[in-house]
Design a protein around this nucleic acid. Structure first.
Length: 521
RNA sequence: CGGGGCGUAGCUCAGUUUGGUAGAGCGCUUGGUUCGGGACCAAGAGGCCGCAGGUUCAAAUCCUGUCGCCCCGACCA
């Protein structure tokens, strides 16, 4: 087979391979083509590039506003956690011990390294090692213990934007990296009911954000015992179906009971003068959401960014076939950009970029297609003659264009973006619905999650499976067996589900209701 | 931590079996022809072949050691 040259045999899609050919590789290629992030020299850690980071900034801005609106305040706690703090909650230690980065020294000095060469070696061993936070329950708990004395100090509603480190064995850009960015909310309450309400409220905030900003439909639910956060009494999560029909946990909200309050001594005197332990919660979303956004919306030409989170809403591409018309075209572009920048959109004004780069037209256009900018507006001499601009939507075909007057664009741009946002959600929802099935027959269940052609010699399995809504008797052993056999787990017990008694799909024992089974990231 | 693989130009890789002193495509620079589209032609810049030893007249190539990375599993936001 001869190597096809670019001119004779240009790829049909901007991303190779396509989703259908090799989904995992497609994901990596989109991350790169869209200029979201790249691998760094540091094992398992990524460099988030400007386009990817501005997506995160937009997510942060919206979420931060939602947290403030629900009464939370931001604070910042140390990156380092004394080892003894982590040891306070037994299940917590067990859950995180295997993935902690540990600081054992506090300076470097000249010496002979392990490879026998001269260089810098760690010196000044710490009396007590410091753990780089994998999550901050214990260090924040220490502060909460000081801040809470009376029922009048409650509820305490705190959020922190931070980086955390989890020494994972295998990493994938955005989905699982050694260091990642997130927010972690930590709250303390006087009563169990209030803490549970908080847990539920923040899950609703996440679901609202996922659906209305990311255009990503989610299922809200409770986790089974085996999938729970270490140390939590109950874990709630939002689960989204990616385009390969696997589930991605997008955010979690934990009801911690009094476990961490007891470990950190968060105590208060209630109105009756009785000393009580507080009830705490914690909840978080991370830069993983960028991976979720990609796998929900991106196509074989690259990223597709939902308008409400786009760093740039409109890209204006000047078309300059002849140098003599450059000035006129550029002026028209700048004029349109200035008008569009006055337009209000989702709490701010439109972000508009005129791409003045000295690149060939095709390269320039494709770079924005791959990044997923919602609207591209082309302006060339011919458009100027006809008094129009050419508008392309990223959620439509790359070559599809609509000619309209600049006035019409300025007047209609917001409804255009709104329609695009809606349409992206609708498409993702349709995909979820199409691949969610109620299954009562164990044979059908097994077939649903079994690939027709198993993976072989670099050819991945075809995309299959989805969400199975089946009854489960909540036996952890059965769940663990299922995971070993089919790689399927209970993603959640949906909150909006009804009681629907019948036989457990795994054991045949009586089961009260249906849960979501799926393969997961 | 178990199994497999790979370290050669910015990127993707060939060359290693059969040692002889470094290549391709893409990208980059310059010039030209094109150009409502990811074009073409020409000329260039760029690598002590992961690192350290050894064998040899001669090592990217053979041997030993070492470091790093990737993939599959177990673990995981």
């Amino acid at each position: 087979m001869s190597q096809p040259t670019k001119s004779q045999n240009a790829p049909q899609t901007a991303i190779q391979p396509t989703r259908a050919q090799n989904y995992a590789e497609w994901y990596q290629q989109v991350v790169r083509a869209a200029d979201l992030a790249e691998n760094s020299p540091v094992r398992g850690c990524m460099v988030i590039k400007p386009w990817g980071y501005s997506l995160w900034e937009n997510m942060q801005r919206v979420l931060d506003r939602m947290f403030k609106q629900t009464g939370h305040k931001n604070a910042y706690f140390p990156l380092f956690i004394p080892l003894s703090f982590l040891e306070k909650e037994a299940q917590h230690v067990e859950g995180f011990a295997k993935e902690c980065a540990v600081v054992t020294h506090h300076r470097l000095q000249a010496g002979i390294k392990r490879d026998g060469k001269p260089g810098l070696i760690p010196a000044g061993e710490l009396d007590e090692p410091l753990v780089v936070r994998p999550t901050s329950e214990t260090i924040i708990g220490a502060s909460f213990a000081k801040w809470v004395q009376s029922y009048r100090d409650l509820p305490l509603l705190i959020n922190q934007w931070a980086n955390v480190v989890r020494w994972e064995m295998r990493t994938r850009l955005f989905l699982r990296t050694t260091e990642f960015l997130w927010q972690e909310g930590h709250t303390a309450h006087a009563t169990e009911a209030e803490a549970q309400e908080e847990t539920r409220k923040m899950l609703d905030v996440y679901a609202d954000f996922a659906e209305n900003w990311m255009a990503m439909p989610v299922v809200k639910g409770r986790k089974t015992e085996g999938e729970r956060f270490p140390g939590a009494v109950e874990t709630l999560s939002i689960e989204a179906m990616m385009q390969d029909r696997k589930a991605l946990q997008g955010g979690t909200s934990h009801f911690l009971g009094q476990n961490f309050a007891k470990a950190s001594e968060i105590k208060f005197l209630d109105q009756a003068g009785i000393l009580q332990h507080a009830w705490t919660t914690s909840w978080g979303v991370s830069t993983r959401l960028i991976g979720a956004l990609l796998m929900t919306h991106a196509d074989d030409d690259g990223m597709v960014v939902p308008p409400r989170l786009a760093p740039t809403h409109v890209v204006i591409l000047p078309i300059l076939p002849k140098p003599e018309c450059a000035a006129v075209v550029m002026e028209a572009c700048e004029k349109l950009a200035a008008r569009l920048r006055e337009v209000s959109y989702v709490g701010g004004t439109l972000e508009v970029e005129v791409d003045r780069r000295d690149l060939r037209g095709g390269d320039k256009m494709w770079s924005w297609v791959k990044k997923g900018a919602p609207l591209r507006v082309e302006i060339g001499p011919r458009d100027l003659e006809q008094g129009v601009v050419s508008v392309s939507r990223r959620d439509r075909g790359v070559k599809e264009r609509t000619a309209m007057s600049a006035d019409a664009l300025v007047a209609g741009v917001v409804s255009l973006l709104d329609e695009m946002q809606q349409s992206m959600f609708a498409k993702a929802k349709a995909h979820e619905v199409a691949n969610t099935r109620s299954i009562d027959d164990p044979k059908e269940f097994r077939a649903f999650f079994t690939a027709l052609k198993p993976e072989s010699e670099g050819v991945p399995t075809e995309i299959h499976g989805g969400f199975a809504l089946s009854r489960f008797a909540m036996d952890p052993m059965e769940e663990s067996k299922l995971k070993d056999e089919l790689g399927v787990t209970v993603r959640c017990i949906p909150l909006d589900g009804q009681d629907d008694p019948g036989q457990c799909i795994l054991s045949g024992k009586p089961a009260k209701r249906r849960v979501v089974f799926a393969k997961a990231y």
